[in-house]
C-alpha cells in the first residue's frame, strides 16, 4: 500500500467511524476517487476484518430507562504462556459482555456488561465471572447516567445551526 492509499484508507475509516451510513459516493467524494473504487476499498476492509461491524449509538435512557449497564474491574492472576488472554476469552464469549479491555493500573481487565435488571447482572458477576479460575477479585460499578457515548453527547440536544441564513 502506498502512502497515498494508506492515507485514503484512513480517511475513509475515520469518516465511517464518525458516520457508518456514509455512502460509497460520499466516501468517494471525500477522497477524490470514483464510487466503485470507494465501494471496493470498503469491501476489502470488511473482508480483512479492519471494519468489524456497523452499529448505532442509542440513548437507551430515552426508551428503556430501566436497562442496566455495569463496569466491572476484574483482577486476574496471569498464567504462564497465555498471560491474561485465556481468562479474557472466558469472559468475552458471554453475549451480555459488551467489551473487555486489558488495562494498566490497580486491576487488570475492565469489563462492560449490560442486562435487563441489576439482579441479572449481579447473578452474572457472582455466578459466571467471579468463579472463573485465576480471577482474584471483582469490583462492580453500576452505570448511573450516561453523558456521552461514542463521541455523541446524550444529555444535550444537538445544537441548532444558529448561523444567519445569508452572510457575506
Amino acid at each position: 500500500m502506498t502512502d497515498g492509499e494508506g492515507e485514503r484508507t484512513r480517511k475513509i475509516l475515520r469518516a465511517l467511524e464518525a458516520d457508518a451510513r456514509r455512502t460509497p459516493a460520499d466516501l468517494a467524494a471525500l477522497v477524490g476517487i470514483g464510487s466503485d473504487e470507494a465501494a471496493n476499498i470498503v469491501a476489502g476492509l470488511e473482508r480483512r476484518g479492519v471494519i468489524r461491524a456497523y452499529r448505532t449509538v442509542v440513548d437507551w435512557d430515552r426508551v428503556s430507562p430501566d436497562r442496566v449497564v455495569a463496569f466491572i474491574d476484574v483482577s486476574v492472576t496471569p498464567q504462564r504462556d497465555v498471560g491474561f488472554d485465556q481468562v479474557a476469552a472466558r469472559i468475552y464469549r458471554h453475549p451480555e459482555v459488551r467489551s473487555v479491555h486489558l488495562v494498566s493500573g490497580g486491576h487488570d481487565l475492565r469489563v462492560v456488561v449490560e442486562g435487563p435488571t441489576i439482579r441479572e447482572i449481579s447473578a452474572f458477576v457472582g455466578e459466571k465471572l467471579a468463579p472463573i479460575d485465576h480471577v482474584t477479585a471483582t469490583n462492580t460499578h453500576f452505570l448511573l447516567k450516561a453523558y456521552k457515548e461514542e463521541h455523541s453527547i446524550l444529555v444535550e440536544e444537538p445544537a441548532d445551526d444558529d448561523r444567519l441564513a445569508v452572510t457575506p
Binding site: 448561523r163 444567519l164 441564513a165 445569508v166 452572510t167 457575506p168
Partner: peptide, 17 residues
Amino acid sequence: FDVVAQMDDVVSLGVGE
C-alpha cells in the same frame, strides 16, 4: 436575507461562515 427570514423550509447555501 430579508426574504429568506420570512420563509420556512429553505436550505441555505448563502452562509459565508
